[in-house]
Amino acid sequence: MIDKRFASAREAVADIFDGATVMIGGFGEAGSPIELIHALIDQGAKGLTVVSNNTGTGLVGLAALLRAERVSKIICSFPKTAGSTVFPDLYRAGKIQLELVPQGTLAERIRAGGAGIVAFYTPTAVGTPLAQGKESRVFGDREHVLEHGIRADFTLIKGRTADTHGNVLYHRTARNFAPMMATAATVTIVQAAQVVDAGALDAEVIVTPGIFVDRVVHVPAPALESALNEAGASYP
């Protein structure tokens, strides 16, 4: 019998090691796996490279992980969301490295990494500072830049519903990067508000097939950045 459930977020993130590359789902607060991130803060791994679209807001979730100075580098498309102060301060102080990537290129680099595509050409960013130093080649009459796939050691994502085989459904725009990130890591960890037995989900509508998921943690009432921030919360 296959059962990918872990009893707690703490146990699910226990083997994340110093220097690991960790993909973290979410676009703004939508899809941000707050409980897994907080468990990672408690766990203490440092020198991490994080791949995530944003850098979190307030003093909770991803922003709290950065504030704890566990992240040495972030690969990101939009690190200055309104309400984001932790990253700008660290960046200006030279305490974190930023690799800025156009959002679609970021998604495709993760998708490619997960699909065994080592690199691809795209016209996105040609002629801009983000293409500097990258190989380029003309296809047809158009210049393209070479972008490399990204793989990670761990992926942390949030689903609405998962089953014991690791099949996952998402909630609305919380889906965003999670399906790609699930494919691109050695170990993919999902926190889901609802966990059901294999066979309970309609196989026609599964978004992330279980082959991409290694660990499922039941987090029945996941916190949201906006609610935590309104309450003035900080973590730890």
Binding site: T105, V126, L130
Partner: peptide, 21 residues
């Protein structure tokens, strides 16, 4: 997407993909 100012936090989002595609 950027004024190129030294103290600015660079952030691009999907703008470069939109104009290219």
């Amino acid at each position: 997407w950027s004024t190129g100012a030294d103290d600015a936090i660079p952030a691009v989002g999907g703008a470069m993909d939109l104009v290219a595609g």
